[in-house]
């Protein structure tokens, strides 16, 4: 008797397929495990930073770390030399980080935004197809290259320009690092803002143009206000990127922990100090080494907050126009 005869004569078998259930369960299990890796990594980051930071705060009070204005970590020369631990006030690093990021944002915001506006509202499709990937190249260049360029070309250039107008520009000035970092994040801002601007519904544009507004008036009065939340989100993301950027500041900004708002002076940043503390010889238990993890924790928390806020804003914005 053929299978169909059996099937129709008896009951149809709809309770068990021919495939192996165990195999499918294993596959599903593996899939779930892989996606849990993402959580595992986050947990790993939080725990390793937290754990080492707590050990640091056993030696140096948190208040000194957060509010102290002097940063000069020294390793004890002898094991019993507690006092030689140095000063761990992170304020100069925080202000240095903010100063450089601020300069970077001052460069990248106008350039990135205007590029995005031009590309999404004025440029022909052909121009877009060419210019967008070219701009993306800026994002694809490794930061160590930017750092090299900043230290080798831009800093001396600023120094000699400064000299010619009678200004004393440090060879590791915040300005050089900030300018170059700004260039690096232009494509981040332009491509995110481009998406955001493109998401503004055509009907709004038509409404404004239909009233006789020019293109630029439409952009300024209708599109930008509608896109503001999304743009804000992308700026926050760019700021978080600037704060966490490491190689440019390591190579161009140096290690002088000056508490200053003068962009022509040398400052140092959180990331540059982490690198300085953890490269070269280190004993793992010294306050100096542990302080790098406290700085890492600070960096992680700040960038996390910026990222969460910006993702929230951008998602909300997307839903609004979906």
């Amino acid at each position: 008797m053929s299978p169909e005869n059996a099937a129709t004569a008896a009951k149809l078998n709809i309770t068990a397929g021919n495939r192996s259930k165990t195999v499918e369960m294993i596959v599903t299990g593996v899939l779930i495990a892989c996606s849990l890796v993402a959580i595992l990594v986050t947990v790993g980051i939080v725990f390793s930073l937290l754990f080492e930071s707590l050990r640091f705060f056993e030696r140096v009070p948190m208040s000194e770390f957060l509010f102290g204005t002097k940063w000069s970590p020294q390793t004890a020369l002898r094991a019993d030399q507690v006092a030689a631990d140095g000063a761990f006030g992170a304020v100069p690093l925080i202000t240095g980080t903010l100063l450089i990021s601020f300069i970077a944002m001052c460069v990248a915001t106008p350039l990135g935004l205007f590029s995005a506006i031009y590309l999404s509202e004025y440029a022909s499709k052909r121009t877009r197809d060419w210019v967008k990937p070219l701009l993306e190249i800026l994002a694809g260049i490794p930061t160590v290259v930017y750092g090299f360029f900043a230290a080798l070309v831009v800093a001396p250039m600023l120094r000699s320009t400064g000299e010619s107008v009678g200004l004393n520009v440090s060879s590791e000035s915040a300005l050089a690092a900030g300018l170059i970092m700004g260039v690096m994040i232009i494509p981040l801002i332009s491509s995110l803002s481009d998406d955001v601007i493109n998401a503004v519904p055509q009907s709004l544009r038509d409404a404004s143009l239909g009233l006789g507004s020019t293109d630029s008036e439409t952009i300024r009065n209708v599109i930008l206000p509608a896109a503001i939340p999304g743009i804000a989100g992308s700026l926050l993301l760019a700021a978080s990127r600037a704060i966490g950027e490491t190689m440019i500041v390591v190579m161009a900004a140096g290690l002088a922990a000056n508490l200053t708002a003068n962009p022509l002076e040398a400052v140092t940043t959180i990331t540059a100090q982490i690198v300085a503390l953890l490269t070269g010889d280190q004993e793992f238990d010294s306050a100096k080494t542990l302080s790098a993890f406290a700085l890492g924790l600070l960096l992680f928390i700040v960038t996390l907050i910026l990222n969460v806020i910006s993702l929230k804003i951008v998602n909300k914005y997307r839903e609004q126009y979906d």
């Binding site: 978080s240 490491t246 990331t271 890492g296 992680f300 996390l304 990222n307 993702l311």
Partner: peptide
């Protein structure tokens, strides 16, 4: 988690 990890500074992964 994934979206946030994508934006965590690379140096933090080094610390990890």
């Amino acid at each position: 988690n994934i979206n946030n990890l994508a934006a965590v500074p690379s140096i933090v992964f080094g610390l990890l």
